[in-house]
């Protein structure tokens, strides 16, 4: 029994490792991406500084916290694949061209396979396009650093962010089983994720009503929750509650993914090549 479990884990680890390596092939693309993230980080930092100069406690953040929020957003947007990309894009393409048939008869769960691949990708993007812009931001603007507990909580929260984002992207990509082409849903997902993750503006600056809704949505797990943990807005039990909400979304959404996958395999005729 434990041997079987061990074998399972090593398969997923192998998938994640290959995925990590696949993305690490394109060094120049990564450097170009780090440059672009940093340029946007600089622009938004000045934009936020001007706002906080007028209103030094907007949304309950101090100016240096607001700037830190900008750089966390830039650091995480590739890690969580905010605008899609990653394993779920492969899934959508394989549904479109019919290769999904191969995935379905593998002796590994389809969901587990793609999740492992996406976690491998996420780790690569975190280590490169997450860490490098953050260093640049810290050098240029002097970012707020987390407490040791905050740092641990942040890493847990980011991992959950990738899982939640993966599950959401998986669902949108799986729409291709019925629509054949998932580009439309993918664009709509980008809109939702950009706005409700906190990337355009911290959710705490949203007007009453909209703010509460936004904070409860799974997209808040993407950037807002990890950032607030880093900034020390969630500590102690409050931090556990924030992470608990992410866990809840991850479990619910992965459950829905499994259901959708089962419905799809029963209903769908694979497109021939």
């Amino acid at each position: 029994m434990s041997g079987a479990l061990h074998a399972q884990i090593s398969v997923y680890a192998a998938i994640a490792t290959r995925s990590f390596r696949r993305y690490s092939t394109y060094t120049v693309a990564t450097l170009a991406g780090i440059f672009t993230n940093s340029v946007f980080g600089i622009i938004l930092s000045f934009a936020y500084l001007a706002l906080w100069e007028q209103n030094p406690s907007a949304g309950g953040y101090e100016a240096d916290q607001a700037v830190t929020f900008v750089w966390i957003g830039q650091a995480l947007l590739m890690t969580i694949a905010l605008w899609s990309g990653g394993a779920t894009d492969d899934l959508a393409e394989r549904i479109r061209n019919g290769d999904i048939a191969v995935d379905l008869y593998r002796p590994v769960s389809v969901l587990g396979w793609y999740l492992a691949a996406d976690l491998g990708r996420g780790l690569y993007h975190f280590a490169t396009r997450g860490v490098a812009p953050t260093i640049i931001g810290a050098l240029l603007f002097g970012l707020v650093m987390p407490s040791p507990a905050g740092a641990v909580g942040f890493l847990v929260s980011v991992t959950l962010a990738v899982v939640v984002s993966f599950a959401v992207r998986f669902l949108f990509a799986a729409s291709a089983f019925w629509l054949l082409d998932a580009t439309g849903p993918r664009v709509l997902l980008s809109v939702l994720a950009t706005f409700f993750s906190g990337l355009t503006l911290p959710l705490n600056l949203f007007p009453d009503g909209l703010r509460q809704v936004a904070l409860a949505l799974p997209f808040a797990s993407y950037i807002q929750t990890p950032a607030d943990i880093w900034l020390g807005r969630h500590t102690g039990l409050d931090m556990l509650a924030a992470i608990g909400l992410q866990v809840a979304w991850a479990v619910v959404l992965l459950g829905v993914c499994a259901l959708v996958l089962r419905a799809a395999t029963r209903k769908v005729v694979v497109q021939g090549g």
Binding site: L51, G59, V191, T200
Partner: peptide, 21 residues
């Protein structure tokens, strides 16, 4: 989708103005 995503830039600025004049 394209219209909405570009419009968000402006919505962000607009929301900023609920905190400043």
């Amino acid at each position: 989708g394209g219209v909405l995503i570009t419009f968000l830039d402006f919505v962000a600025i607009w929301l900023m103005f609920s905190h400043i004049d």
